[in-house]
Simulated assay, not measured.
Amino acid sequence: MKKALLLLIATIIFSCKTESKRDNKVDVTLEVKSEVFPMELGKVFQKHGGINIWRKAQILSFNKGKEIHTADLRSRKTVINTPKYSLGFDGMEVWLSEDKKGIFKGNPAFYYNLYFYFYAMPFVLADDGIIYEKVDDLVFKGVKYPGYKISYKENIGTSPDDNYIVYYNSETYQMEWLAYTVTFSSKKPNDLFHMIRYNKWEVVSGLVFPKEITWYKMDESGLPTEPEKPATKFTLPLLSQGKIGASFFEKPIK
Rank of each mutant, 00 (worst) to 15 (best):
205 S>K: 09
250 E>D: 12
126 A>R: 03
249 F>K: 04
240 S>E: 07
64 K>H: 08
37 F>I: 05
216 Y>M: 11
123 F>D: 00
205 S>G: 01
119 Y>A: 03
201 W>R: 09
207 L>M: 09
34 S>M: 02
70 T>G: 07
136 D>W: 01
48 H>P: 04
63 N>L: 00
2 K>P: 04
186 S>C: 01
73 L>E: 04
172 T>F: 00
102 G>C: 15
177 W>Y: 12
122 P>L: 03
126 A>K: 03
53 I>G: 00
254 K>T: 03
152 Y>E: 09
50 G>Y: 02
182 V>L: 12
188 K>T: 05
75 S>R: 13
214 T>D: 03
20 S>Y: 05
90 D>H: 04
172 T>M: 06
203 V>A: 08
253 I>E: 15
123 F>S: 01
132 Y>G: 06
35 E>F: 14
85 Y>M: 05
135 V>R: 07
240 S>G: 05
129 G>K: 05
68 I>S: 09
228 E>H: 10
76 R>N: 07
42 G>D: 02
86 S>C: 15
229 K>P: 10
85 Y>I: 06
153 K>H: 13
92 M>Q: 10
169 N>M: 08
80 I>A: 04
146 P>Q: 07
21 K>G: 00
20 S>M: 12
26 V>N: 01
230 P>W: 03
125 L>H: 12
172 T>A: 06
85 Y>T: 10
138 L>T: 05
137 D>W: 03
38 P>S: 10
102 G>T: 14
64 K>T: 06
199 N>W: 07
190 N>Y: 06
235 T>Q: 09
241 Q>R: 10
156 I>H: 05
88 G>K: 02
149 K>L: 14
211 K>S: 09
47 K>N: 15
111 Y>D: 12
149 K>R: 15
6 L>V: 13
52 N>C: 07
27 D>W: 13
81 N>W: 15
109 A>N: 08
19 E>V: 14
110 F>P: 01
51 I>H: 03
17 K>R: 10
77 K>S: 11
213 I>S: 02
146 P>Y: 13
182 V>R: 14
55 R>A: 00
105 K>Q: 15
120 A>Q: 02
115 Y>M: 14
243 K>S: 13
108 P>F: 00
176 E>T: 12
50 G>E: 00
128 D>W: 06
210 P>K: 02
7 L>C: 06
115 Y>Q: 08
151 S>P: 13
109 A>V: 09
158 T>L: 14
121 M>D: 05
233 K>G: 00
128 D>R: 12
149 K>C: 13
50 G>M: 04
135 V>Y: 02
158 T>D: 11
53 I>D: 01
124 V>N: 12
254 K>Q: 12
67 E>Y: 06
195 M>E: 01
134 K>A: 11
245 G>N: 12
139 V>G: 06
116 F>K: 05
238 L>T: 11
209 F>T: 01
200 K>P: 00
25 K>Q: 13
206 G>L: 02
